[in-house]
């Protein structure tokens, strides 16, 4: 492994004020300051953003893909968490 290889960064772009930052892609940079600048140059060449986050790719923890069944099972079937579950009140104004 070449120790001079620049680390990988994940880039998140806010496309306009009021919206969340959304993952745009990744890039290589020697440090955070350059990662931000590279992200600006690479991911906002067409006015795609008003704000950028960069995160070292290895700093991201993610859920285990092998356990996706159990990890995301619980909310399935709990339709009472959604307004559409409550049908009797349908048609009542301002509700």
């Amino acid at each position: 492994m070449n120790t001079n290889a620049w680390p990988l960064w994940e880039v998140f772009v806010r496309s306009s004020r009021g919206l969340s930052h959304v993952h745009a892609g990744s890039l290589h940079a020697p440090d955070a300051a350059m990662a931000l600048r590279n992200a600006r140059d690479l991911y906002t060449r067409r006015n795609e953003g008003v704000s950028i986050w960069v995160v070292p790719a290895d700093a991201i923890s993610s859920s285990d893909p092998d356990s996706k069944g159990s990890f995301f099972e619980s909310p399935q079937g709990k339709d009472y968490r959604h307004a559409t579950y409550y049908t009797k009140s349908e048609g009542v104004k301002h509700l």
């Binding site: 496309s15 919206l19 959304v22 993952h23 745009a24 006015n47 795609e48």
Partner: peptide, 13 residues
Amino acid sequence: SGDGSASATRITP
């Protein structure tokens, strides 16, 4: 992803 109108590829001149 997330909120529907947020996009990292929305482009304007």
